[in-house]
Design a protein around this nucleic acid. Sequence first.
DNA 1: TAGATTGTTAATCGATTAACAATC
DNA 2: TAGATTGTTAATCGATTAACAATC
Lengths: 215, 215
Amino acid sequence: MGDKVISLAVIRRLPRYYRYLGELLENDVVRISSKELSERMHVTASQIRQDLNNFGGFGQQGYGYNVEYLYTEIGKILGLDQQYNMIIVGAGNLGQALANYGDFERRGFVLSGIFDVNPRLEGVAIRGIPVRMMDELEEFIQNNPVHIAALTIPKTKALQVAQDLAGLGVKAIWNFASTDLHLPEGVVSQNVHLAESLMQLSYSLRNLEREEGKL
Amino acid sequence: MGDKVISLAVIRRLPRYYRYLGELLENDVVRISSKELSERMHVTASQIRQDLNNFGGFGQQGYGYNVEYLYTEIGKILGLDQQYNMIIVGAGNLGQALANYGDFERRGFVLSGIFDVNPRLEGVAIRGIPVRMMDELEEFIQNNPVHIAALTIPKTKALQVAQDLAGLGVKAIWNFASTDLHLPEGVVSQNVHLAESLMQLSYSLRNLEREEGKL
DNA sequence: TAGATTGTTAATCGATTAACAATC
DNA sequence: TAGATTGTTAATCGATTAACAATC
């Protein structure tokens, strides 16, 4: 059980379910049917039921789903029931923005270190955490378990640093650099490619113009 | 011609093709076959040819694709052959990080304004652009064409602000708030949900642990 | 011309939707 | 019990891959 590989399409939708359920929970909604949730989320009820049943039967016939229970269970599936220590590598604008964003902590992602190559940043504290120099990285990881590393460094450095981190035992890379990281088996990564996101928006906007020009 | 709706899956891949072609161009590679590109990108050659042929025949039998030509053409498809004026709404950490990131400008996304509600930020300049107060937004847009608005504000404000922007004629919203924006026809949006991205990474990491625990 | 590689059609695969029996 | 809604199987739809004729 639990051996079936879950498709990426499903995984991508889970956080969104989690978000909607969290909002329902905040509004003291106790139960919800797949139909009602589907209307709120603009997806089909069938898809919701199929997605959830990849992981188990969380509902009850004739009743629907208990919001709190389903929220908790999806949280477990996403690994939000445990804490992860995260470091940020690259204390530029984006790295600092991530460091200052406290919301991740609420979800169990604890910022434990910030690293950069720029000596002018050495010791500067962000939310109480001092920026350390890159040459302290190895020793730091040996003394403090690091589960996730956010990479907010130039693309030219990203692969090398990611490989170094993998070598030091970091198993998850949150990559903000504009490059693809091909990492060894047993190391996972997730890309945030802002430039690509903006280009997709630009495509849509251009398309809109094309359509309107046609009318 | 050009009427066929292109699937989202294809659109999402275009910026990645663009990035790889840009790198080839920098390395003075003149021509490339779908096969060679597919090996570099870890996709099938068939998919590359199918994707490109949604927009036209850019290659030549027996030769492959001219790198510079294909790069330019994909750029046009993505709307990168023209300039767009962009404003940033929300001058918090993330908004400032985006503002400081000069690379977008290179691609034709010109930052023309930054807005916030915090009076302490009023007039503070980021890359030479002063932060303006939200109540100046309407007049600003009337005097300066704004094509794209990046929304780096709390999720509770995002929908309202997005609707206001749409009402003022902004056609594209780059949304960083943790909420879904359902906007009127004729307004496009693209979400960057960092929390969801981190949860997907967390899922993969948790899965890794589950697999290893099983061995 | 012979070889290479595209553009495109056909085959396969996977994801989404529909339908409905099971059951609370 | 009757009504509601799930879990799950079957049908459909769309996306990916394979194959190959067209052609440079």
